Amino acid sequence: MSQWITVCDLEKIFPATGICALVDGKQVAIFRPSEESQVYALNNMDPFAHSNVLSRGVICEHQEQLWVASPLKKQRFNLKDGSCLENSEVSVDVYNVRVADGKVEVQL
């Protein structure tokens, strides 16, 4: 059975930024691309740099899709499916995430 874990209040994530949360022992990067309540969650580990830095990346748009650019090696990862724009053989894990009653929750 899956469980939703509350991470923080939505208002704690500034629009156009990301945060890192420790969820069940895993570093999860949670992104809020705009003023809206839509959020995305990826594994925080940059598979190229082998560092937990994706939450510090820059949110960008390419071909009408949202991506995060790693702050170290600059590869872009799709916020919906975790795929890498620059290397189709690499991806990061994606987590189910939602906003419920103003709280950001990640599903285990």
Rank of each mutant, 00 (worst) to 15 (best):
Q75F: 11
K103P: 02
S34W: 05
Y95P: 10
Q65H: 01
I19P: 06
C60V: 13
S70D: 04
L72Y: 06
V53S: 11
I59G: 04
R76D: 06
W4N: 03
L10M: 07
N87I: 02
W4R: 00
T6Y: 02
N52M: 03
G102M: 15
P71R: 03
S51V: 14
F48T: 02
P47D: 01
G25S: 12
S91V: 05
C8F: 05
K26R: 13
Q3A: 14
V90I: 15
S88H: 12
E105Y: 08
Q38Y: 13
L108Q: 15
A69H: 00
N44T: 11
K73Q: 10
M1T: 09
Q75T: 03
D46S: 14
Y95D: 01
V104Y: 04
V97Y: 03
L42H: 10
V94C: 14
I5S: 04
A49W: 01
V99I: 08
C60A: 12
P15R: 14
S34G: 04
P33L: 12
S2W: 05
M45W: 07
N43A: 11
Y95W: 08
I5F: 10
V68S: 12
V99W: 07
P33E: 06
V58C: 07
E36L: 15
V23P: 03
Y40K: 10
S83N: 03
D24H: 11
V90Y: 09
Y40W: 01
P33G: 11
N96G: 04
N44G: 10
S37D: 13
Q65K: 00
R56V: 01
L79P: 00
L42G: 11
S37V: 04
S34C: 08
H50W: 14
I19K: 08
P33Q: 08
E86N: 03
A49P: 06
K26A: 08
G102K: 11
L42Q: 10
A29M: 05
A29Q: 00
V104E: 06
S70Y: 04
W4H: 00
C60N: 12
M45A: 08
S51C: 06
S2F: 02
K12T: 03
M45T: 05
F31E: 08
F77D: 06
G57L: 10
K74M: 14
L85M: 07
I19Y: 02
K12D: 13
P71H: 08
R56I: 03
R98K: 13
D24S: 08
F77M: 03
V90S: 06
V23G: 00
S91M: 13
F77A: 11
K73H: 12
V94G: 08
Q65P: 00
D9C: 03
F77L: 04
N96E: 12
L54K: 13
G25H: 08
I5M: 08
Q38G: 10
R56K: 14
S34K: 13
L10D: 09
K26C: 11
P47V: 01
Q107L: 13
S55P: 07
E61N: 11
V58S: 05
V53K: 05
H62E: 10
Q63P: 00
E36K: 15
Q65R: 07
V104W: 02
P71V: 07
K80I: 04
S88M: 11
D24A: 14
E89Q: 15
V92W: 02
M1Y: 02
S37T: 15
S70M: 05
V39E: 06
A29Y: 01
